[in-house]
């Protein structure tokens, strides 16, 4: 009887260990590999060595990509102000209302996520490239790019105002970046288009919201991004938007992955709207 228990425990433990080992192995086989093709199951092995200094450049695989990146840490929401709650209550996020009941403009029309949501949603792939006075973050999803100025300028003060010199809010806002140390690149952004949602769960933001990103190069193969938002008009405290982990892509390739309006309309017509919304989802 004692041996039966011991054997059962050893058997299950063995299965667990073997499963973990199989998942950790680089799955590359010996078939010819094209330098043009993205192989989602090809994973960088280990940390690849120490992080290069002041260098985020390259193509990175994010959460849910199959790359083995650690799980994303979710948002932590501070209390809303009465004004923030008023706007939040108007939003019907897809997670609660399903495609048939949501009013998320990205779900219904492929409207841009906007920043900061585009750094926490569908962030399976991105490329970072640097020029002398700017750093570009190029996102696989929707084929879009963000521009981060590193020439020492300050953020614009007058975004969304009425004066002649007022700046227009932008989907990706206005961003400046600096190296805090040899491995941490800090980006500050403001001037965000107010019609976008800060998160997929429908939390709003103002034009004046200030979002900070901290990109930390942990090793040659690992990059960690944390995002926070300060928006006192809508929130009584700082909003933790999430912690996102990335892994180096061995052949630096990405697939096409985008929202196509005609496909979204087809999907909603054939599937999303007929399926409807959970009747218990009403807010």
């Amino acid at each position: 009887m004692r041996n039966w228990y011991t054997g059962a425990i050893a058997g299950v433990a063995g299965v667990l260990v073997l499963g973990a080992l199989a998942a950790a192995q680089n799955t590359q086989n010996n078939a010819p590999r094209s330098p043009w093709k993205y192989y989602p199951m090809d994973r960088a092995i280990g940390d690849g060595g120490p992080a290069p200094k002041r260098d985020l450049s390259g193509t990175w695989a994010g959460p849910a990509s199959g790359s083995g990146a650690p799980r994303q840490k979710p948002e932590v929401v501070p209390p809303l102000t009465p004004l923030g709650k008023q706007l939040f209550d108007r939003h019907k996020p897809i997670g609660k209302y399903s495609p048939g009941g949501t009013n998320d403009p990205h779900t219904r029309y492929c409207d841009p996520f906007g920043f900061p949501q585009n750094m926490t949603q569908e962030i399976r792939g991105m490329t970072i490239a640097t020029t002398p006075n700017r750093t570009f973050v190029m996102l696989q999803y929707m084929d879009l790019w963000r521009e981060i100025w590193t020439d020492g300028r300050t953020l614009p003060a007058n975004v969304g105002g009425r004066g002649r010199d007022a700046h227009d809010p932008k989907y990706n806002g206005y961003s400046i970046g600096r190296w805090e140390d040899d491995y941490t690149f800090v980006v500050d952004t403001t001037g965000l288009a107010p019609e976008t949602w800060a998160t997929k769960s429908g939390y709003p933001h103002t034009v004046e919201a200030r979002v900070q990103e901290r990109f930390h190069r942990d090793s040659k193969n690992d990059l960690t991004l944390t995002l926070t938002m300060d928006d006192p008009k809508f929130y009584t405290g700082q909003f933790f938007l999430g912690e996102v982990h990335f892994r180096w892509i061995p052949n630096q390739q990405l697939d096409d992955f985008t929202c196509i309006p005609s496909e979204v309309q087809l999907y909603l017509k054939e599937m999303g709207d007929p399926a409807g919304s959970d009747p218990s989802a009403a807010r």
């Binding site: 997670g95 048939g100 009941g101």
Partner: peptide, 22 residues
């Protein structure tokens, strides 16, 4: 053992993405 097996079992989504609410 049972707890460990449960931890690696396939997790049920709640409202992931748009979830299965409908």
């Amino acid at each position: 053992v049972v707890v460990l097996a449960g931890l690696v079992a396939i997790d049920r989504p709640l409202f992931a993405h748009h979830g299965a609410a409908a």
